[in-house]
Amino acid sequence: MKRVYVNEEWCLGCHLCEYNCAFANSGLKDMADALKGKNIYPRIHVEGDEKISYGVSCRHCEDPICVKSCIAGAISKVDGVVTIDRNKCVGCLTCVLVCPYGALAPSEEGTMQKCELCLKNSCGEPACVTGCPNRAIVYEERG
């Protein structure tokens, strides 16, 4: 299955992926409307220091511990993509407690959100990848 991979050597640490992510998931047509003057809640986070940086988002694990741990049965894996039913989520943070990558965080409304590969939003493919100026994030099939 295609996943998002990062290339530390090429990442500029510019945080553009975070903005592209928040915009793609905002449901709005205009980037300024979606982001300007607002707290953003991206599903990818750039980590590192001045020398090394890289974006971190959900790995869509083969054996996802978040799915097993969700107290509400709100997380499931459908065709390889780990998704959250935000209608069922109660914001208890149990998934935050177990995900080894820190890939889940509360949304503005308090329910959890995480990278779902932009398959359900208007972008249709990961916005962090399409918007990265240096190809430091790719969306591809690896072993």
Binding site: C95, V96, L97, C99, G102, L104
Partner: peptide, 13 residues
């Protein structure tokens, strides 16, 4: 501060 606590949990595990 409970953000990304799973990183710690995975270290225990």
């Amino acid at each position: 501060e409970t953000e990304r606590a799973g990183i710690y949990t995975s270290m225990i595990r």
